[in-house]
């Protein structure tokens, strides 16, 4: 039996498809008996769905660095 902490970790991993088969199995069993974790898991999945649906964009770190440099140059 795995702990809730481990279950949360696997749950987070599986949001990014990085959980192994055995881990997923462990999580399934845990979710059957633990109400809190199954609630968390449901919400976590929903968050992933929302993030996918929103089609988020973000600037890469390199772009941000360039922006900072330009801002610095503008300030002087």
């Amino acid at each position: 039996m795995i702990s809730c902490k481990k279950a949360a970790l696997i749950c987070n991993k599986s949001q990014y498809n990085e959980a192994t088969f055995i881990e997923k199995l462990q999580l399934r069993f845990h979710l059957v008996v633990c109400k809190t974790c199954s609630k968390f898991s449901k919400k976590n999945k929903e968050l992933t769905y929302l993030c996918d649906k929103a089609g988020l964009n973000s600037l890469s770190e390199g772009d941000k660095r360039k922006m900072k440099e330009k801002l610095q140059a503008g300030a002087e």
Partner: peptide, 15 residues
Amino acid sequence: QPNTWVDAYADYLFN
């Protein structure tokens, strides 16, 4: 606080 702008708002504005 212009030094915090890029970290705090760049992604929001970009979206």
